[in-house]
Design a protein around this nucleic acid. Structure first.
Lengths: 161, 161
DNA sequence: GGTGAAAAGCTTCGTGT
DNA sequence: ACACGAAGCTTTTCACC
């Protein structure tokens, strides 16, 4: 899906705004070596091309009282479409679930990343919510001891000419 | 780490700006039922309290030619501190690594989430980069067949009075 | 915390190169 | 396609209620 292949300046723009969405067009233009007008034009084009999705504010997990990050591997009894759909739909209701992917190459079917205030909350989530969903066969829990890398910036190196 | 416990209005603010960092203070104030001045005051307080970290722009993985999301479980030969530190430091150089956590409750030591343009890139990453790091014992690869949930918004429900 | 006004900043044009 | 410059607007920031 590479309709609008970003050139060198586009990539500079993307690099900057990925790190800081609050940057003004003026400062952005300066950093990428452009004047404000063509810079904002390029940003708009990148939005229209669907490359720029949206701007979000990142909060601090610890400061909000969510020190626990947990990776959960979920296996399903069957791979029936209806079962999977129901599982995925139910999961949408749990705000603690930051990520969920259907995966292959593992004994599990889904991998989840969830954040929690403490163990009591996780126990409740595990036994009363996740484990209650129809079709769940087994669950394996991995606690994150330490966050080594946590990035929202996508790599752009593969776009080089 | 709950120095400044956010009240109801704070939580409304956090909910809004988590979803859209581009919202103006005027519109934000309106949405949370405040006038602009106290609203911006609260946002500043939340920043000072370390609850608000920063604003970022999210890009589209597919539009950028990065259709592959891969979860990688890495086991280390030993848990020697120096080895782990070297592994973690080396990993910082790989922009494709979106997340990396040291985990327990699994046979693996680290779980990684990486994004890739295609299989050839991943093969290179796996054999020439990840596998070359001192102390890596074994690597298990799980391809994401489908992204079910991908959120950057932290849950706030546990803060309710 | 609300209201108002002033000041500062940004974005957006048009024009020219 | 980019640079420059002016106009117009929004936003932030006070002082005061």
């Amino acid at each position: 899906m590479l309709k609008h292949k970003p050139d060198l300046i586009d990539r500079k723009i993307l690099r900057e705004i990925q790190q800081d969405a609050a940057i003004s067009n003026l400062e952005l233009a300066d950093k990428v070596g452009l004047s404000p007008s063509p810079c904002s034009r390029r940003v708009k084009q990148l939005e229209d091309a669907g490359i720029i999705k949206r701007q979000v504010t990142l909060l601090d997990q610890e400061a909000l009282g969510l020190p626990l990050t947990i990776y959960v591997h979920v296996s399903m009894q069957t791979q029936e479409t209806a079962r999977l759909e129901n599982f995925e739909l139910t999961l949408q209701n749990f705000e603690a679930v930051q990520e969920c992917s259907l995966i292959t190459g593992s004994d599990a079917d889904y991998i989840l990343k969830v954040v929690m205030p403490d163990m009591a909350y996780y126990e409740h989530f595990l036994l009363k919510q996740l484990n209650q969903i129809e079709g769940v066969a087994s669950i394996r829990t991995s606690f994150a001891l330490r966050r080594v890398i946590s990035r929202t910036t996508l790599p752009l190196g593969h776009l080089n000419d």
